[in-house]
């Protein structure tokens, strides 16, 4: 198999995983469980999807430059933390 075929296949596998996770998150929204649990499960799936896109499609898997990691990871981490805390607040107080 050529390197071209292998590379393209990898992107196809990631796409299939993303579509599968889309179906999973839609399924979770119909589960007869608490709203807090549904929010937690769906956001977890969204984080996995975002991780797959950024790691493979945005090529963070091959990124070794430390300044880029500081620029990228730090704000993403802070934002994820802030949004997660607000979601928890929404689930607890609503």
């Amino acid at each position: 198999m050529t390197s071209k075929a292998v590379s393209y296949k990898k992107y196809g596998v990631i796409w299939a995983a993303l579509i599968g996770l889309l179906a999973v998150s839609t399924f979770f929204s119909h589960l007869p469980i608490s709203k807090t649990a549904i929010i937690g499960l769906i956001m977890l799936v969204s984080l996995i999807k975002a991780g797959l896109v950024s790691w493979y499609y945005m090529h963070l898997d091959g990124e070794k430059a430390l300044p880029l990691w500081i620029v990228v990871i730090f704000p993403f981490f802070l934002i994820a933390l802030a949004v997660a805390m607000m979601l928890i607040g929404l689930a607890v107080f609503s």
């Binding site: 998150s25 839609t26 979770f28 929204s29 709203k35 549904i38 929010i39 769906i42 956001m43 799936v45 969204s46 999807k49 975002a50 896109v53 950024s54 499609y57 945005m58 949004v83």
Partner: peptide, 17 residues
């Protein structure tokens, strides 16, 4: 890809939750 990333979070937050 960033535009896609934003939608990955918008879809559940606006339509599912």
């Amino acid at each position: 890809h960033f535009v896609d990333l934003v939608w990955i979070f918008l879809f559940p937050l606006v339509y599912l939750i």
